[in-house]
Design a protein around this nucleic acid. Structure first.
Length: 314
DNA sequence: AAGGTTCGCAACCGCAAAAGC
DNA sequence: AGCTTTTGCGGTTGCGAACCT
């Protein structure tokens, strides 16, 4: 028992790889590639199963891997993306060039998780642990009376939102934020390219670069249709439908009134400033990292209509 | 110094999706 | 269309190193 299901007939070596085995694998793959992992062990002269070879290559031998400890920037990206995606390590790793899903997962389990816990945050939801009852309340709201949502299905109309972790007056947020499903992420660029004095600390400026992070993050989600809409995530189909997202009841995130902000930012940044200046105690950085999306579809009235068609399920 | 405990990481396992036939 | 094989993923385990008592 305990053998690999993929190679039960062969006698295969297990456990740590020796330098000789590594060398054989590297040599074989650099010379011939890996058309089929199941045939790699035989062709490379290794007493391993294909799965083991693949894992060794992907997680350790690939030349484009970045070894060494994670930088603070990388850590922040992991936290931010995890907040949106949960334990989708492979997806998270795509935001970190040179890192593998296994590496990210190990780093999370050994380091980040503990940090979050020690900061009083639930590593699953990223919410304050003491606020978990509020989350429950929010979940119940989402479950309740779905038929009411149709009559009020604009993301900008929902005012039943209380931001986590904030000392700011509630009305500020009622005025400026709407709830979005965690899956409905929208890309903002940071305020780096702008005169940041016009914006509260951490406030996002919706702009040309559709990346939250200057590096590789690219997101977004365009629902293909209202029913069973599949979402496009980082250029690849996201694994769920809108309905599934709703069922998941992941962390509810908040967003600026996207279209209003875009329009205001284009013409009149002071409007933004004045509407946020009372809320300086709110951690806008949370928003910055959570909200990601391609706003190219949001720069006119038609895109406003576009968003308003969504079956927002608040 | 020795034994026990914790930590970090590489590797394994089982499952599901995708691909091939 | 249905079965088999392959691939990819997330959870978990096992082991060596570091740390603690």
């Amino acid at each position: 028992m305990g053998g690999h299901s993929c190679c039960s007939k062969q006698k295969v070596k297990r456990g740590l790889w020796s330098p000789e085995e590594d060398e054989k694998l590297i040599k074989h793959i650099t010379n011939h590639g890996h058309q089929s992992w199941s045939s790699v062990p035989r062709l490379a002269g290794l007493q391993r199963c294909g799965k083991s070879c693949r894992l060794r290559w992907v997680n350790y031998l690939r030349p484009d891997l970045k070894r060494g400890s994670f930088s603070a920037e990388e850590e922040q990206i992991i936290i931010d993306v995890h907040r949106i995606l949960g334990n989708r390590w492979a997806q998270i790793a795509k935001h970190l060039p040179g890192r593998t899903d296994n590496e990210v997962k190990n780093f999370w389990n050994s380091c980040v998780k503990k940090k979050l816990i020690s900061n009083g945050l639930d590593p699953k939801t990223h919410n304050l642990i003491s606020n978990s009852h509020n989350n429950q309340r929010t979940s119940n709201i989402n479950k309740a009376a779905p038929e009411n949502k149709k009559s009020n299905n604009s993301i900008f109309n929902n005012l039943d939102f209380q931001p986590e972790n904030s000392n700011a007056p509630l009305e500020i947020f009622n005025k400026n934020f709407a709830k979005l499903p965690a899956s409905c992420t929208t890309t903002f660029s940071t305020s780096g390219s702008h005169d940041s004095t016009n914006f509260p600390n951490g406030l996002l400026m919706i702009e040309d670069t559709p990346n939250v992070y200057s590096s590789s993050t690219s997101t977004i989600l365009n629902p293909a249709s209202l029913e069973n809409c599949m979402w496009d995530f980082s250029g690849e189909p996201f694994e769920g439908t809108m309905h599934e997202f709703q069922q998941k009841e992941q962390e509810i995130t908040c967003a600026t009134r996207i279209i209003d902000r875009v329009n205001e930012a284009k013409g009149c940044p002071e409007t933004i400033n004045s509407s946020f200046d009372q809320s300086s105690s709110f951690d806008f950085g949370i928003l910055e990292s959570v909200l990601t999306s391609d706003l190219s579809c949001c720069d006119d009235q038609s895109s406003m209509d576009y968003y308003d068609q969504f079956p927002w399920n608040f």
